[in-house]
Every structure is written in structure tokens, then in C-alpha cells.
Simulated assay, not measured.
Amino acid sequence: MQAPGRFRRVREFAEAGDLSGIVSDALGGRSRIVGVDRLRGGSKKGVYRVRLDGGEAASVIVYRWSDEEDFWPGTRADDATDPLAPASGIAPFLAARRRLDEVGARVPRVLWADDTRQRYAADVAVVEDVPGGTLEALFETGPARADAALADLARTLDLMHRHHAPRHGRVDLLDRGGVALGSSCEQLVLDRARRDLDEAAGRDTRIGTVRDRLDERLRELRERVLPRAECGLIHGELGPDHVLVSADGRAVLIDIEGLMYFDVEWEHVFLRIRFGERYAALSRPGLDQRRLDLYLLAMRLSLVAGPLRLLDGDFPDREFMRGIAEHNLREALALLP
């Protein structure tokens, strides 16, 4: 795989002194910060575990949305009309949390939030620290608890996917009366996949040499998809690393800013990729196989182009991101007839 061009910059992340006022505003000055850890994995916002002394909670999580925390080069402006674009910001976060609460999905409790930027140079939110870790980690350390949480996740997804809207779009956009891009989910996916294909072909010769065949395959799969009148509520990027497990065994959804109404097959394709053999617990009858076929190839191409784009910047976990691109490149090629 060709190495993309990239730049390095010195980023200024939040430290205990920066977060003390936020925590004081959230908890009323009852707690003293004894430690701050910036959690790995975030690419659009900073996620900090703040350890406390003297209050009711031993720790809280602080979300911080600012340019310093955004590792996506050239995508600073969040286009809320494009449901497939990376979503970020306190407005989509709060809108998503409200909707998930309404349908009965478990998400971290918001203790405090501020989007005024009058006291802080970023949008910030303080949420509960769910103590059980991620479902991904629990698969290795506590298989029995993981199985119970996976079953709870399946129930949560049923609640979400049965919550319908007549039109696709991100929740925060639709709540404001906005209209999303694209005439349909399948057309939006096709258009996005062809852009991802062009980008990937320009970065790696293995894609470039079969670009026309992949493009033809995408258009062929799109032609097989029949129109649909409604969309379900989906997370959009739900891997086991985006599910925490609460003390009582509930599946708790995080990184929810991209919550949208869309074809549930888009969610199921991602679930199948990320959960692997454990996807059987999440699979459901009645999915449209034609949509699944189109969306699988489109998702594979997205998971090549997106990581390579991220590597144009200074994202720190570079080998991990290269591995995602390499794996999905091979999987995309394997889908050619």
C-alpha cells in the first residue's frame, strides 16, 4: 500500500487545570481532580476520564469538541445534511442522546453540558463514567458477562431499528426540520462508494487496476435495489468498542453523534464486519439481501478510503489504522465476481 502524504502538528490536549472549571461547574465544586487520562481511539473529539476525590462519583468522563481534538484533515466543517459524513459536535450528541432515551436505549447520563464557548474554548459535556469497560474488552476478560450484554445489545437494536421515519437523515438535522442529501439511502450509498473508490484507486494500485470493475459492480448492485418507504434508527458505526457494559450488565451506547434514520441493512453490514462470529446474536430475519450486497461492498471501500484519509493527518495510532485499510482492501477485492 502506498504511503499517503501527511503532516505533523503539535496538538494541545486538555490537562487537569483545563478541566477543573468544567468539573466544578458540572459537580458544584464538591470534587477535587486527582488525575486525568485522555482515552485512546477518538478521532473527532477528545474523551477524558477525570478521576475525583471528595464527591459522589470516583470519576467522570469529559467530552471536548474542538479543532485540537479533530484528526480528520480537511473536514473541519461538519455537514449535517450528509448522513454518511463523519459527525461531530455537542448538538448532534445531545439530539442523539434524547432520541435514544426516547426509544429505551441505554446511553451515559449527561451531568452537564456547555456549547456557549464563553468560558471554554470548546464545546464540552460531562457524562457518567460507565465502570464496566467496553464490550470488546469483555469478550476476552468475561465471556459470560459479554454474552449477557450482547443479548441486551440485540434488544436495544430491535428497539432502535423498529423506530421508523419516512426519510433518511441525521437525527439533529431532522429535528430542526432539515432535509438530508440524496434521493434515497441506496443512491446516497452508491454516490459515496464511487467517491471512496476514486480516492482509494488514487492511493493504492491494487484498487486502481480494478477500478472500472469495482465501479461496474457497484452500479450493478444498485440497480437491483427496489425503493423503500421508511428508514430505521441506526447508530451508524456500532462496533464492540462503541458499547460499554454497565454494572448491571446493560449495553451502553457511546460515540452516538452520527445517529440517523437510514436503512437498517447499513447498520447490519457494519455489525457483521465488526462482531464477526458473534454477529449471529445480532442478526435478524427480514433484511433485504440486495441492500446487504450493495452496502457490504460500499462499506469495504469506505473502510479503505477513510483510514487512508485519516493517515494524511497526524492520527497517532497509525499502524492500527493502516491495518484497517489493508484488511478491507483485500475484502473489497474478494467481492468482485
Score class of each variant (00 low, 15 high):
Y120K: 05
P108M: 09
I33V: 09
H327A: 15
L190G: 04
V210M: 07
H161G: 06
T209R: 15
E186Y: 08
A121L: 13
A281Q: 04
P307Q: 05
R272V: 01
L153F: 14
D198V: 00
A122Y: 10
D288V: 06
L296E: 13
L294D: 01
A58H: 10
G286Q: 08
R97V: 05
R228Y: 07
W72Q: 03
L214Y: 05
A95P: 06
R9Y: 10
V210L: 11
V243K: 01
I33T: 05
R109P: 01
A26P: 09
G232V: 09
E12C: 13
A332E: 00
I324S: 04
L233V: 03
Y279S: 02
D215P: 03
L181N: 05
C185G: 15
E102I: 02
P166M: 09
A281P: 01
V171E: 01
E56T: 02
G54W: 12
M299F: 03
A334N: 07
E216T: 04
G17Q: 12
R309L: 08
D172W: 10
L287A: 04
R213V: 11
T205G: 09
I207T: 03
L333S: 05
A105M: 10
D198C: 01
L287G: 03
G239K: 06
G276W: 13
F7N: 00
W72M: 10
L296Y: 08
E56V: 07
R145L: 14
E102T: 09
G46K: 02
R106F: 14
L297I: 02
L157C: 13
L188C: 09
E102R: 13
E68K: 12
Q2Y: 09
H163R: 12
D70C: 08
E199Q: 12
G169A: 02
V47E: 08
E68S: 12
A80C: 02
L311Y: 09
A95H: 07
T141F: 11
A57G: 03
H164S: 14
R318F: 01
W65L: 04
L84I: 00
